[in-house]
Design a protein around this nucleic acid. Sequence first.
DNA 1: GTGGTCTAGACCACA
DNA 2: GTGGTCTAGACCACC
Lengths: 132, 132, 132, 132
Amino acid sequence: MYIVLDPKSSRPIYEQIIHKVKEQVALGVALPGDKVPSVREMSSQLMVNPNTVSRAYRELEGMGIFVTMRGKGTFISDSFRAANQEEAKRRVQEKVKETVLDAIYGNVAKQTYKQWLDRYYKELGGGESHED
Amino acid sequence: MYIVLDPKSSRPIYEQIIHKVKEQVALGVALPGDKVPSVREMSSQLMVNPNTVSRAYRELEGMGIFVTMRGKGTFISDSFRAANQEEAKRRVQEKVKETVLDAIYGNVAKQTYKQWLDRYYKELGGGESHED
Amino acid sequence: MYIVLDPKSSRPIYEQIIHKVKEQVALGVALPGDKVPSVREMSSQLMVNPNTVSRAYRELEGMGIFVTMRGKGTFISDSFRAANQEEAKRRVQEKVKETVLDAIYGNVAKQTYKQWLDRYYKELGGGESHED
Amino acid sequence: MYIVLDPKSSRPIYEQIIHKVKEQVALGVALPGDKVPSVREMSSQLMVNPNTVSRAYRELEGMGIFVTMRGKGTFISDSFRAANQEEAKRRVQEKVKETVLDAIYGNVAKQTYKQWLDRYYKELGGGESHED
DNA sequence: GTGGTCTAGACCACA
DNA sequence: GTGGTCTAGACCACC
């Protein structure tokens, strides 16, 4: 798995890692069961402290995206945990509201927004999303 | 202008203020030309450090949403700055992508997302947004 | 809030802190809304690295037991998050099974176990537990 | 003796083995005097490093559950060691306290807990436990 | 003052 | 080899 960070971003490195990993998994670049680079590998690849990578991995495990097997390594989970979904949905909704606000100030028409939406859902979603 | 903050949010207070102000303006609650409470007023209203309000106002002025007239006070601008619009658009697009990613992990269907979109555009935007 | 660690325990320090805090809250020694010692205070009190305390606090926040307000401090949450309860219950059940196994090997009679149970529920529960 | 491990568990494999063996013995599936698979057999059966099995066996012997006879093999002991029983009891009590704490946070009522208790004592212990 | 992030480097448990 | 834990010390954002 190859990841590129944006050193200029004010966003914490561990969050960038989390985000990029989620992206790779959503895109299907990284598949369930795949081995993930070890903390050390990733940290030297990204020129970042192992602790930083470790934290990102720990949180990804907490999200049910990673599974780690002590002494063996870390892997992409083969089943996302469904827990906390309500909470997650609420947060998404908040974020959508926020984004719309920004879109209005950025003079982005609803139509344009919807085009982006279609594009990204297609790119990232792979049709797997099926609501309860 | 009345604003309510969420003291528990991890989001910085000054950002919350910015967000709420933008919301009020988008909703049409605060109209162009309207006088905005002074930093002191606002800070005592919100029980918040004046520095915090001051910073929010400064950034809002930078965005072209506030205009300050020395000795008179701060007002809602009657024309948003068009500058940096490309940049703003790009950021919005990034944010949309991010939100879609979260939506996928939160099991939010595209259709649901679009419903929210329609709702919020209606609530917040009116029909004023017309792209260049 | 006073906490005592067991330096001999093999259990990670951050877990010990989490456990002790949960205990204090359950006992009603620490009440919702109470300010918690700052990371620095706690770390010097316990003679432990601030990062270690920080991690414990972060996880406690994740569990919905702590609420932190940037620049102000950390506080006992006034409402525990109900999310993930099913998952939590399942883990408790596993743990009960395990404990019973240990009890059998430790020659602890069921009756004795139940006495302990009554005692600890009384000590720790405060009668607040009411199942859905 | 057939054992199934959970490779995803964060629990060390050697502990899982210990736990499963104790369970089998408590359930009466493995009886005193029974021969236990050799370290090699077990390790190939579980697809696990022999060192890992070896460690589990060593600890089980330390607990007085296994007895090894040089050149003959390893067997289920016909008498559990009574030594350190006070110590064992104390640890069980600690664990019960801990479990109650988790139960409270997981919103598990005392009644529910007792039901589980009855079930597991019945499943695992039979009526063999008779306190000193 | 507060908590959040990151680095550098160490030691340990596990496989 | 892997990940987990901890320390020491630094800088930053927020209030």
